[in-house]
């Protein structure tokens, strides 16, 4: 028997491999790290390397004791810091999502209605920022927003203002950073949805007495709902846990959960508490992810 024959005998086929690979990937890069974090979140803090105590301990000769410490979770609810950080993260993510909708919808709509040649160019422009690293682009915003940065200099030169505006290290700068970075994630799924739209429906609506804005509100908007939801989730979910942008643009007062996580982990070396924060964040986001999944499934099923 050759190798292929052996493999088949043990139930390994080409198709099987294709199915198994993604699961293997998930297991290796999601499930295993998740279990580790989960484990740490139930451990006691310790002055050691790594800085926590093991969960399992041999007591006596033949018995293995599991010690689960729920204090890490309880602690999160006693200190207002964590709850505030969670709430603030959700608020920031929510406002950013709304801003992305307000800015991104007209853009996606414009691209979808453009002539095919222009459309590709516009899409390219949307994707272009991905060709440089996020960090570089955020630093570029610092250059634009700081006291003697480009924007202030131009405004002073134009005589619009006398003294430089304080923009950097404010919520304003943070929102600019987040919206700027996540806008393509909103535009692309919405565009994919709008691009499938039959524009003759708008003609039919106008024929039946709708003014253009009414036709938009009654036809385009409901038909693009799934694209809008998908795009919103792609902004909202990562924005809740965003760390880099608030840290670089938002200044010291931007209390976000990603920031708290970082501080607990690296400054306080409180790995168990940090892990608990991470797990709680995940639990918080799971409903949104599931919603996103169902929207995606509906969208690809074609039923609206």
């Amino acid at each position: 028997m050759n190798t292929a024959g052996y493999m088949r005998r043990f139930g390994v086929t080409g198709r099987g491999l294709v199915v198994v690979l993604p699961y293997l990937w998930l297991l290796l890069f999601f499930v295993v790290p998740f279990v580790i974090v989960l484990k740490i979140s139930f451990s006691d803090i310790d002055l050691a390397i790594p800085p926590y105590k093991p969960l399992l301990e041999w007591v006596g000769k033949n018995s293995l004791a599991i010690k689960l410490d729920f204090n890490n979770y309880a602690f999160l609810f006693t200190d207002r810091l964590y709850i505030n950080a969670f709430l603030n993260s959700i608020k920031v993510a929510f406002i950013s999502t709304v801003l992305c909708i307000l800015i991104g919808y007209p853009m996606a709509y414009g691209i979808a209605r453009a002539k095919p040649a222009t459309r590709n160019l516009l899409l390219l422009l949307v994707i272009l920022p991905f060709w440089t690293s996020l960090l570089l682009r955020v630093y570029a915003w610092i250059g634009l927003l700081k006291a003697n940065g480009v924007i202030n200099n131009v405004l002073i030169w134009l005589g619009v203002i006398q003294d430089p505006l304080t923009m950097l290290y404010t919520p304003f700068a943070m929102y600019i950073g987040i919206v700027y970075s996540y806008l393509p994630f909103f535009i692309l799924p919405l565009y994919a949805n709008l691009e499938k739209m039959d524009w003759q429906l708008l003609e039919a609506a106008e024929d039946l007495g709708c003014k253009p804005w009414q036709a938009f509100y009654k036809i385009t908007l409901p038909l693009s709902r799934n694209g809008m939801l998908a795009g919103s989730m792609l902004v909202f979910i990562p924005a809740v846990g965003e760390f880099v942008i608030p840290a670089l643009l938002g200044g010291p007062n931007a209390l976000m959960i990603g920031r708290v996580l970082w501080d607990e982990f690296f400054s306080n070396r409180a790995w168990p508490v940090a892990s608990a924060v991470a797990i709680l964040l995940l639990i918080l986001l799971v409903p949104f992810m599931m919603w996103y999944q169902s929207v995606q499934a509906r969208e690809s099923a074609g039923a609206r």
């Binding site: 039959d198 003759q200 039919a204 039946l208 609206r304």
Partner: peptide
């Protein structure tokens, strides 16, 4: 009023 060749019915 017009009836479109492709019908243009509102799918939702």
């Amino acid at each position: 009023n017009m009836m479109f060749q492709s019908y243009a019915l509102f799918p939702h």
